[in-house]
Design a protein around this nucleic acid. Structure first.
Lengths: 191, 191
DNA sequence: ACAAACTGAATGAACGTTCATTCCTTGGGT
DNA sequence: ACCCAAGGAATGAACGTTCATTCAGTTTGT
C-alpha cells in the first residue's frame, strides 16, 4: 500500500471514529488500529492530533465548497444562488451524516471558534460563496441590511438544525419539503 | 461553612469552569480550588465527575424551563406571543451565558446524546407553549403549514446560533437588533 | 469524646507523542 | 538475472504527562 493510501486510510478511520465517538472518545491508538496502521505511522503523515483534526475539517469543507461552486454559474440571480447554496449544503449533510457530525463537533469546540473567527473577519483569501452572496444581496437591496453573522444564522441555523433532526429521525426531508424550507429561509433574509 | 454551602460552592465553580473551558478543560483539582475546597471534598458531595456534570445540567434545565414558562402568557395575538417567546428565550440566553454554554456543550457530548433535542421547549408531557403557539398559527392560516420540527428550526435555529455568536463576541445583540432579528424569524415562519 | 466532614498527597489508568529499530522499495554494479 | 546498499516509511514499546479518584490522617461541630 502506497504512502498516499495510508494517509487516506488514516483520515477515513479518523473521520469515522471522531464523528461517532466524539473528539475526546477516539484515542490515536484506536484510529491507528482502525486504519490498519501502527500508532507511530500517523505521525509520519500528521504532525499532531490537532493537525489531523484540522486537516480533516479542511478536507470536508473543501469538498462542500467544491460542490457549491460546481453549480454556481456566474451571473445567475441572487435568489437562485441562495437556493443553490442552501440545497447543496442541506443535501450534502443529509447524504453525509458522518461529515455532518464531524463538522458540528468541530464548530462546537475550541478548534471551531478559532476557525470561525478567521472566517468571519475574511482573513485568508479563500473564496467564500455565502459571504459574497449576502454582501451582493444587501448592496442590491434584495436582502435585509443586517450584520453578516445574523444572515448566516437566519440561513444556516435552520438548515443545520434540520439536518440534525433528519439524521436523528425526527423528520424526513424529501425533495419538496427541502424546497419549502429553503423558501422559508429566503423569506427570513429577503427584504 | 455548612455542608450545603460547600456543595453550592462546588456547583458554582464547576458551572463556571466547565462552561468557560469546556468539559475536557476543567480538571477536578481546578474546580476544587476555585470552590475553596480540597479535591477529595467534591467526592463527599458527588459520587463522580459524571454525576456532578449531570446534576449541574438538571439544575440548569430546571431554571431555564421555569424562566421560559414565566414569560408565556395566553390570550394575546399570535404575533405578539411569538415575539414574547423569542425575546424571553434570546434574552435568557444572553443574560445567562454560562448556563447557555454549559447546556450547549452538554447537548454536544456523549452525556447529551440521550437527552439530545428540544428538551428546552418541553418536548414530552411537559407544558409546550411554543407547540401550542405554532399549531394555533397554522390553523388560523397565519403561519406556514410546515411540520412543527421545521417551524422550531426556523425559529430557534437562528436564535441559538446568535446567542452563541453574541457570547463569543462575533456580534453585539442590543435591543433594536434583537427586535429586527425576531422580525426576520417571523418573516420565516409567517404565511 | 465521637462522628462527620474535610484534606491533599498518593495511586494508577489513559493518552499523545517519541524514537530506536525493522521492513521494504529502488536502482546501480557485477 | 542477481545482489546489495541506501534511505524513506512504518512499527510499537516506552515515556512523560495529565487526571479522576482514593484513603489515611486531621479538623470541626456537637
Amino acid at each position: 500500500m502506497s504512502k498516499i493510501d495510508k494517509r487516506h486510510e488514516i483520515m477515513h478511520a479518523a473521520l469515522e471514529l471522531l464523528a461517532e465517538q466524539g473528539f475526546h472518545g477516539a484515542p490515536m491508538a484506536q484510529i491507528a488500529s482502525h486504519a490498519g496502521v501502527a500508532a507511530g505511522t500517523i505521525y509520519c503523515h500528521f504532525e499532531s492530533r490537532d493537525v489531523l483534526i484540522r486537516e480533516l475539517y479542511n478536507d470536508i469543507e473543501g469538498r462542500i465548497n467544491a460542490q457549491i461552486e460546481e453549480g454556481a454559474a456566474a451571473g445567475i440571480p441572487i435568489r437562485h444562488r441562495f437556493n443553490l447554496v442552501c440545497s447543496v449544503l442541506l443535501n450534502y449533510f443529509i447524504d453525509h451524516s458522518r461529515e455532518f457530525r464531524y463538522v458540528e463537533q468541530f464548530h462546537n469546540s475550541p478548534y471551531g471558534t478559532e476557525h470561525r473567527r478567521d472566517k468571519l473577519l475574511g482573513r485568508n483569501g479563500e473564496t467564500q460563496p455565502c459571504r459574497d452572496l449576502f454582501l451582493l444581496g444587501i448592496s442590491e437591496g434584495v436582502i435585509k441590511d443586517l450584520p453578516l453573522v445574523v444572515l448566516y444564522a437566519m440561513t444556516f441555523g435552520p438548515l443545520v438544525a434540520l439536518a440534525r433532526d433528519h439524521i436523528l429521525g425526527f423528520v424526513v426531508l424529501d425533495k419538496t419539503l427541502i424546497e419549502r424550507i429553503i423558501d422559508a429561509c429566503w423569506d427570513g433574509v429577503k427584504r
